[in-house]
Design a protein around this nucleic acid. Sequence first.
DNA 1: CGTGTAAGGAATTCTGACACG
DNA 2: CGTGTAAGGAATTCTGACACG
Lengths: 107, 107
Amino acid sequence: MVDNQSYRDKKVINIGIVTEMTGLSDRQVRYYEDRKLIFPERTSSGFRKYSFSDIERLMEIAEQIEDGVQTHEIRKDLAKREKHKMISGQINSHFNLSQSRERYHVK
Amino acid sequence: MVDNQSYRDKKVINIGIVTEMTGLSDRQVRYYEDRKLIFPERTSSGFRKYSFSDIERLMEIAEQIEDGVQTHEIRKDLAKREKHKMISGQINSHFNLSQSRERYHVK
DNA sequence: CGTGTAAGGAATTCTGACACG
DNA sequence: CGTGTAAGGAATTCTGACACG
């Protein structure tokens, strides 16, 4: 079954639960989205929906921020990882959709 | 890691997503709770929170209802299953909390 | 019995902005 | 740069009840 993985990645969690689980403020969570570090989905009415893996990701981000890493750097690390995934053949949808173009601009 | 299981059982999903995923109405979902077929948690403000396994359970319930099985019967089947789990040593919290007393009354 | 619905209220989330630094 | 906050509005969820059957 591929189900466990899908539970981990399925975006069904409101921001309220996310802040509770991560200890971050909603302001922080939204800001990291603005900085392109996380990619929640939206309900038709505009509510953000997160997955468990988003929550894990946020905890990683929080650690780095505490260590003084800037969002810009964290973002570059993400790009690096995604690149490896591409190479290994694991396509990531948000990467394809929102980052592939940019990669050829960012120098 | 025990994490996959915890994702499955962690109650973090609002009723809106549940109705969307199961195709049931909120009225139905709440009714099945009233009938003691599912056991969502509550936020401090009273919002119901469901897990992925709750959603799976709801789909099972929906099937049985369609087959004309009454909630009362579905509930008894649940009790039966829980009993087996007890025997095999897998304690289930809601069973312990809300049903163990009852078992000695229900004839 | 199982489910639909209108009703009123309370809690959640959203965006854009000002603030500090 | 990263985060707090007050502001106003829109969408969500909650409960108890009436309805049908």
